Amino acid sequence: MIGAGVFVVWAPAARAAGAWLFAGLVLAAVVAWCNATSSAQLAARYPSAGGTYLYGREELGPWWGFLAGWGFVVGKTASAAAMALTAVTYLVPDGWWQRPVAALAVVALAGVNYRGITRTAALTRVLLAAVGAVLVAVVAATWLGGAPGALARLEPAPATPAGVLQAGGLIFFAFAGYARIATLGEEVRDPRRAIPRAIWIALGVVVVLYAFVGIGTVGTLGPDAVAASPAPVLAAVEASPAPWLAPAVRVGAGLAALGALLGLIAGIGRTALAMARHGDLPRPLAAVHPRFGVPHVAEVAVGAAVAGLVLVADLREVIGFSSFGVLVYYAVANLAAWRQREGRLAPRAVQGLGLALCLLLVAALPVASVAAGAAVFAVGLAGRLLVRRRPPR
């Protein structure tokens, strides 16, 4: 969750809502809390690989599960490519070699995942410690420079409700990540206790950290400059009393993107495993390595797909598309948790609110993102329909 989003999401959110982007931040946090509660409740009941794909199948039926799983696999594969490209943008000098380096980074991190989830977790700890230290330094530099006071004196320009909703949907992209905890249910000790705790703790820490970073960034630059900057956090540090921190921010953003990429590959592979087990993806993807205990065929396939995308695709506008897929994924999670009878952790009102807000934020996303997302979902559903109608061999 502490990935590339915290370094880039403020710009599109400021373009949508100006200084009212903090209303969008609060809205995104509320939606994330509802979704996290539903995910924790379902993960405790179904501690198996697959996340909402599995929960949708169990509580709502196979088509609902496919809708969630397809959105996760397609949307997060594109997001993984975006993370790889973000990393090399910060870490590698401009030139034709950026895309090949990004592809090599994907292959290397897919190799880490291939060796087992304990190695994935160990590398994640290292990346998180480095990125967390950089973000603490960003907050210190911008806040000591008077960012909170400048933000308090700012008179926000009027914003439309649609702009605030769109900002919330875009900022939600940066929160997405706690669902991947639930996809690892088969590889966690005592999942009924550990997974809900991990989801709630992770979300709480991230919401607080993002609020501090957002206040420092917008307070230092102002909403107009944030909206115009491709790297607003870096620009805020350069304008702070500690511009010498800028190289560290570049490294931190690159490491954050790599950490997000590492978690994405792991989560996509586990969801693909679950879908292949039920015949919604090619069945060879369900193979589990006899030594490392990971879905190694799915991991290789995901790594190859992401590496291919970074070589050919331009994913600068991926935030809206990714938000579309993830919000649909969580809409299914909230609906499944609403229907759940055994092992409930929260009242149905929480899941109803989460479902309504997910659908509202989807509708408020940029038109191009909604159109692209709807087209991808239509292709997936049509493909499944055709496969299901084929007579067995």
Rank of each mutant, 00 (worst) to 15 (best):
Arg192Tyr: 12
Pro191Leu: 12
Arg189Phe: 11
Thr217Val: 12
Ala231Pro: 06
Trp200Met: 04
Leu203Val: 01
Pro196Lys: 08
Pro230Gly: 14
Leu203His: 02
Arg197Met: 14
Val218Arg: 01
Ala211Val: 14
Ala227Trp: 01
Trp200His: 03
Val218Pro: 00
Ala198Cys: 08
Pro196Met: 10
Val218Tyr: 00
Pro223His: 03
Ile201Asn: 15
Gly222Glu: 08
Val208Ser: 12
Ala225Leu: 02
Ser229Ile: 08
Leu221Asp: 00
Ile215Ser: 02
Leu209Phe: 15
Ala227Asn: 01
Pro196Glu: 10
Asp190Met: 06
Ala231Met: 08
Leu209Lys: 11
Val233Pro: 01
Leu221Ala: 03
Ile199Cys: 14
Pro223Leu: 02
Gly222Val: 03
Thr217His: 03
Val208Tyr: 12
Asp190Ser: 07
Val233His: 05
Gly222Gln: 06
Val208His: 07
Pro230Met: 11
Asp224Trp: 03
Leu203Pro: 00
Val213Glu: 09
Val207His: 07
Pro232Arg: 00
Ala227Tyr: 02
Ala231Val: 11
Gly204Ala: 11
Thr220Ser: 08
Ile215Cys: 03
Val207Met: 06
Ala228Glu: 06
Trp200Lys: 00
Ala228Arg: 14
Arg197Thr: 09
Ile195Val: 04
Val208Phe: 07
Arg189Thr: 10
Pro223Arg: 01
Ala211Ser: 15
Gly222Ile: 05
Ile215Ala: 02
Pro232Gly: 08
Thr220Val: 06
Thr217Lys: 02
Leu221Ile: 07
Leu209Gly: 13
Pro191Thr: 02
Ile195Trp: 00
